[in-house]
Design a protein around this nucleic acid. Structure first.
Lengths: 334, 334
DNA sequence: CTCGCTTTTGCAAGCGTGTGCAAATGCTGC
DNA sequence: GCAGCATTTGCACACGCTTGCAAAAGCGAG
């Protein structure tokens, strides 16, 4: 087809009647170039359809402008909304995001990271997998900045962004008690993610402080189906709970559907339910789920502003954000 | 911090006692290098933590290995599942995906594409925005391969992947009639996307062939809320429809929720509903929506296999895939 | 051992860009 | 016009890699 392929700065320079450095400087912000030549270059570039080669630029500057998003379960509502926010913010800051999917085998995160390193990504943001020491090491050793979201890793070097999971869990416990519930339960997956475990521990602790025990049930992955299974397990007990805090909204949706359609229970009259994440579905009128809003935009802003910031900033390597309680009708009262 | 930053092939060569070319050849598949030196190189590389610089490689080979995903509404269930499938397939083929979010202003797709070109992406996959001639031109002129998904563009050059929307719509019409419905409606957004319009036209045409008129109602974006609004509009009519085909599952979910909770209607007894996409939520027991499954994995496989294929293949520049009908209980009978 | 052949190796050029340095240019005030 | 200064420009090298080409090495047969 088109043999010419790309037009180089050289050709632009010739057409504009200037040196190649002038072209380079025109497209480098902060470089010294007179308005006259600048315009000549811009005209020539426009006419020829010139685009700076970011591969070459990255090679020279030792800074690719690439940020790597390492994420599993991309299709999940919460994850995809976070990805949306992150890509948005990154683009606003002139960065570009590489997306790495770690859904498959175990070593895939490692493989993915290695890929990121080969492209000399300036940074990586991990929203996936458990905090593996070797992985963060690999990143840092290769001069990448690293952001861990909801991983609760307090190693030196990376920025970790977390929510006040335990505090949120305590607020739910209080709300349940205020609604007159006495038999509390916690529905979790078996993923064992730090944030999920923090919610579980926080809920159990808060309940204990209120003089109540908590039935904890865990099953499978963190998804709708697991919510149904956990409902099956919890609602067939002799001491059926009258309030259940689900570790995520997806679990809550599954739980609610099973409770209603399989056990013919009324929410919140017979059982109160709360979730976490505030995914879009939580607001749907079939659920009207009381839950905690993940401040995705703020998370993204924190992450990106730290990434693009100047190198010297050992101030706060750990950020804990607040999750607002979104009150809907899956808990009595309010 | 670490001043050394990255280790180059030069250093590996010195450590291994071979020439730089030997190192290069070791990491280039199909290059001529003896097993002995190859092993020496691999050992040295491992010891030093060497990673091929893909920026430089891309510069030389005129092939970056980058594929650009240009997408709006990333957080949407269908879109995010397609992204998942695409990234998966691309990684399997040794490509890496750049994600560009075009949620914001109008010219953003153009901006995004320009960004892709700067990084010399080998190809772009567009799942967003309307088929703008200038955009595809920009891609093709810069030697990128282009895949359009659900855009129904039949220009020369790009591969376009579409579904048999019209045929699917006809199948729904038949199912509705078979269920005894007589007053058909179509719920759409105002997005005007080719695939949405194809479903609408197909449905109207099929109904006409069956001797029935269709009430078409359109509103806003293609999301849950619009489904509610359209329900409001359709269900307050004197000639209230008894079957409605929603252009997407999200619309259908909104419609069903409004029909049930706001109009106290029973589905499918009083009204039959069908959707399109088969998002995860369609299978949730609150909806049990009869819908058409987007063959996302097949779409991804088609797209990627075409992208990585050898340059000479003017065979089929347009692929039309079949959407399977997933029968659930939102239509009577079955 | 030497010849002819195949495989492996090193050299060096080149990909498109950024940038330090010195030369050139423009501008101001006498 | 000229000196003095600030600004702009061009040259040339560097970044880390691939690859054509020719020299070197291996290898089997005579």
């Amino acid at each position: 087809m088109s043999q010419k392929l790309f037009v180089s700065a050289q050709e632009v320079a010739e057409k504009a009647g200037v040196s190649r450095s002038a072209v380079s400087r025109t497209f480098t912000s902060g470089a010294s170039v007179s308005p006259k030549t600048r315009q000549k270059v811009l005209d020539a570039a426009e006419a020829l359809g010139y685009h700076v080669n970011h591969l070459a630029r990255g090679l020279m500057r030792n800074e690719s402008g690439i940020v790597c998003l390492i994420v599993s379960e991309i299709g999940t509502p919460y994850r995809s909304s976070l990805i949306r926010a992150l890509t948005q913010q990154l683009q606003n800051s002139g960065k570009i995001s590489m997306l790495i999917n770690t859904d498959r085998s175990d070593g895939s995160v490692d493989l993915a990271l290695r890929q990121a390193i080969r492209y000399r990504a300036d940074a990586s943001i991990i929203l996936s997998g458990l905090p593996d020491k070797s992985i963060t090491d690999l990143c840092l050793k290769n001069g990448q900045r690293l952001v861990l979201i909801n991983r609760d890793d307090d190693r030196e070097g990376p920025l970790s962004i977390n929510l006040d999971d335990a505090d949120a869990a305590a607020r739910v416990a209080t709300a349940f008690v205020r609604a007159g519930c006495r038999k509390l339960a916690f529905a979790n997956s078996q993923a064992g993610t730090p944030s999920l475990m923090a919610r579980e521990r926080g809920f159990v602790a808060a309940a204990k402080a209120l003089g109540l025990d908590v039935i904890v049930e865990r099953f499978g992955h963190t998804g709708y189906e697991s919510g149904r299974v956990v409902a099956q397990q919890l609602l067939t007990r002799k001491d059926r709970p009258d309030a259940v805090f689900c570790a995520t909204d997806l679990l809550a949706c599954g739980f609610m559907d099973a409770a209603r359609h399989q056990f013919s229970m009324s929410i919140p009259d017979q059982i109160c339910v709360a979730g976490f994440d505030d995914i879009e579905q939580a607001a749907w009128s079939s659920y009207q789920l009381t839950t905690f809003a993940q401040p995705v935009d703020m998370i993204a802003r924190e992450a990106v502003s730290w990434l693009v910031g100047d190198s010297a900033q050992p101030e706060h390597h750990s950020v804990r954000l607040h999750a607002d309680l979104v009150w809907r009708s899956s808990i009595r009262g309010g």
